[in-house]
């Protein structure tokens, strides 16, 4: 396999693993974030605070906890997940889940009372008002997806601890950059870094464009 082919393979793996992790985290985190943003209970602030705190969880700490859980003697050892792409997906999904919840909840909370009251006074019923708040939270939801993917694709700790950087199996862009740099292949490391940054930029441009289309569609 040529170096170019190897870079393409690693890049595609990174995209697949982090994309799937973001998708899983968003599927659970965004509804939970909307629920917390719309809820008017006392426990909401506390829960939102917890998720905000978890946003900055060190990746190696999460990687270590998952390593213990996935290892043969761990509670999920029977599934033999350690050093598999699935372990990577689960680890990254757990890492970015609080980001999706937090950003969505914060956006929704900030908009909730004003947009809800506007919709109600213009004649919407309670369900219509809630739909209006969710629709207005779209920017925050897309930001949550963007931040989640960026964090997942650029993290190193979980990928190293539960992925193991196995060539052709769990090697992703960040673990490759770390490996090539320690090998003295700084130029290759830099090339991979450019690829990583390009992915993040392109992903966010595409997401921004998608947001505008979704917004247009929601108002049709």
């Amino acid at each position: 396999m040529t170096v170019e082919e190897e870079i393409v393979e690693i890049t595609l793996r990174s995209l697949a693993v982090s994309g799937l992790a973001t998708l899983l985290a968003a599927a659970a985190g965004i509804p939970l974030g909307l629920f917390l943003g719309l809820a008017r209970s006392r426990g909401r602030d506390m829960l939102t605070g917890v998720f905000r705190g978890l946003m900055s969880m060190p990746t190696v700490a999460l990687g270590l906890v998952l390593y213990v859980i996935f290892s043969r003697s761990g509670p999920l050892g029977v599934f033999r997940l350690l050093y598999t792409p699935l372990a990577l997906v689960i680890g990254q999904a757990l890492l970015v889940f609080p980001i999706g919840v937090s950003i969505t909840a914060e956006t929704c909370t900030a908009l909730s009372s004003r947009v809800r009251e506007l919709a109600l006074t213009l004649g919407a019923d309670e369900r219509g008002a809630t739909a209006a708040v969710v629709r207005e939270s779209l920017g925050g939801i897309m930001l949550a997806v963007s931040a989640s993917f960026s964090r997942a694709v650029s993290e190193l700790g979980v990928a190293l601890m539960v992925g193991g950087n196995l060539e052709g199996i769990t090697r992703v862009l960040t673990t490759s950059i770390a490996l090539e740099t320690t090998r003295g292949e700084v130029v290759l490391g830099l090339a991979l870094t450019v690829v990583l940054l390009s992915i993040m930029v392109v992903f966010n441009v595409v997401l921004r464009s998608a947001e505008q289309r979704i917004r247009w569609w929601l108002w049709q």
Binding site: V115, L118, L120, T121, L122, G123, R135, E136, G139
Partner: peptide
């Protein structure tokens, strides 16, 4: 309540608008 809101409309001090045209 919904019937009341259909007949009474409030314009807020700080303008609130939807993120559309």
């Amino acid at each position: 309540l919904h019937g009341l809101r259909q007949r009474v409309t409030m314009v807020f001090q700080r303008p609130v608008v939807f993120g559309t045209t």
